[in-house]
Design a protein around this nucleic acid. Structure first.
Lengths: 99, 99
DNA sequence: ATTTCATTTCGTAATTTTGCGAAATATAAA
DNA sequence: TTTATATTTCGCAAAATTACGAAATGAAAT
């Protein structure tokens, strides 16, 4: 009987990271947050890109879900920052893949 | 009147590359082809991964469409190879982004 | 208690992605 | 010419993505 190997955990992980970065809005968000070093609210982002607030919110949620960013509440705003630990891991993985 | 800037061409380009790499089968394909240096047929790939032949074919098509690979006919097989020129560009772009 | 503000969640629609098996294609071998 | 081989295309279905505006949330200011 022929066995079908699964994808490796690394292949899955790389794909997950790339998926998180597979929309220009999310590329923009990561660029913006990286450049800020500090953090940034969605209100500061919305003026830069051609999508509705609710759509931006969805993209932020996806990046948060992927672990690449995190949001801390600072009423009435939410400050988003890069999740440095996970972003480092992501960069290492991708750099390895691109090597 | 408030103008909504577009995404930059670079953001679009990075997103397109990431999208091409956003599925573990496609990550596997790029790894395999890179490691082969030479080329590789879909028949040599199908045994490594848990998807049907027709599905693999679709993933190959997407990577071809994204410009990351190319296929040359060598009947009755098709030899797929990395498109080195575009892959270099992709790597440069991603490396810049990950910097 | 009401209003204001920044943001998210909800409801919905259109489109894209992923997957499979069956059928089609194209070439080489018998 | 029939058969075998490698691969793709087709037809379809299920699920995910992207998008928007309207409504909801939660905290602060009035």
């Amino acid at each position: 009987m022929v066995v079908k190997p699964k994808f490796t955990a690394q292949q899955e992980h790389i794909a997950r990271i790339c998926k998180a970065l597979s929309h220009p809005a999310r590329v923009y968000i990561m660029e913006k947050l990286s450049s800020m070093d500090g953090c940034c609210t969605s209100g500061e982002m919305i003026g830069d890109i051609p999508i509705a607030r609710s759509t931006l919110s969805q993209h932020l949620k996806e990046l948060k879900f992927a672990g690449l960013i995190q949001g801390e509440i600072d009423p009435p705003m939410i400050k988003y920052c890069v999740n440095k630990q996970n972003w480092e891991i992501a960069k290492l993985l991708l750099n390895g893949f691109l090597k």
